[in-house]
Design a protein around this nucleic acid. Structure first.
Lengths: 143, 143
DNA sequence: AATCAATAATTGATATATCAACTAATATTT
DNA sequence: AAATATTAGTTGATATATCAATTATTGATT
């Protein structure tokens, strides 16, 4: 049986988790009480004002159910408003509150710094190559 | 604010989750009622017979607490035996049961196929390069 | 218009992640 | 040897992931 940590996907796993923990730590250190996953949802709403929860779930690769619950937390925290959609009563209309807008922008700055730190000493060329490879893996998994 | 899905780490996230779901689906389809994460722990024990739970948590990048709970599930499922270590009574002695050994090997086969499918049309050279890059990111996050 | 199908979101159950607090056992220091 | 520090693991609280079942609403079919 080949060793676990020989495989690319083990390294991928490790990288993903390490980066996540690193980012989360930096957000906390800056005094923001929000998870990266919560911020990603706020950011999705900021970028796409009329987005549905279904669309969000596709953007962030999570289950619908998870989105419902995370949004509930964001509403509780005062970052999001939730209302019934005027034209389709099945849908939920999401809008950022003022503090939601603020934290989205603030954490975005930290996220930018996190990315820069994580990609230090790696040139654009390499990043582009890696993206292509990752896309290839993704499409291989969709067969 | 730059778009979410422009960043490498977004693609990394997507790739990781897509591959995970793909692997898990294939294990289920083959009739095995075990999660990839549970299997990883069985495999760690198989590879390192005298391993501690602390060591497992480092290998699979999870919290000690998570390991305790996953191991509890594996004991309940009859795949693992848990006993007090003879020389250090703080430690837990983990051994695979017969069915634990069997499922570890069976799922390993599926995992091998999953990896092959995920890495289709990607040559060894590229895989090696990507590993190096991922390692670089990991070490950047450890500063 | 009534029936049926599809869609958006929620809820329940269970597994997992993470942090903090804790217990028990062992190792180190004085 | 007693006091203290360290280590291995567990437990509680809360957030999240995933699947399946469900509700409410809208769209399509006849």
């Amino acid at each position: 049986m080949e060793k676990l940590n020989d495989t690319l996907l083990y390294t991928l796993d490790k990288c993903f988790r390490t980066y996540n923990q690193f980012s989360q730590r930096n957000v906390r250190k800056a005094g923001y009480d929000i998870t990266i996953d919560q911020w990603l949802i706020l950011k999705s709403v900021a970028e796409n004002p009329s987005i549905t929860q279904n669309d969000i779930s596709k953007i962030v690769f999570k289950d619908n159910a998870s989105i419902t619950r995370i949004i509930q937390l964001l509403v509780n925290a005062g970052y999001l408003n939730r209302a019934v959609h005027a034209l389709d009563r099945r849908r939920v209309n999401l809008t950022l509150t003022e503090s939601g807008k603020k934290i989205t922008i603030d954490v975005n700055e930290i996220a930018k710094q996190n990315r820069a730190a994580a990609l230090k000493n790696i040139d654009t060329e390499q990043v582009a190559q890696m993206k292509t490879l990752l896309q290839q893996i993704i499409s291989n998994c969709h067969v």
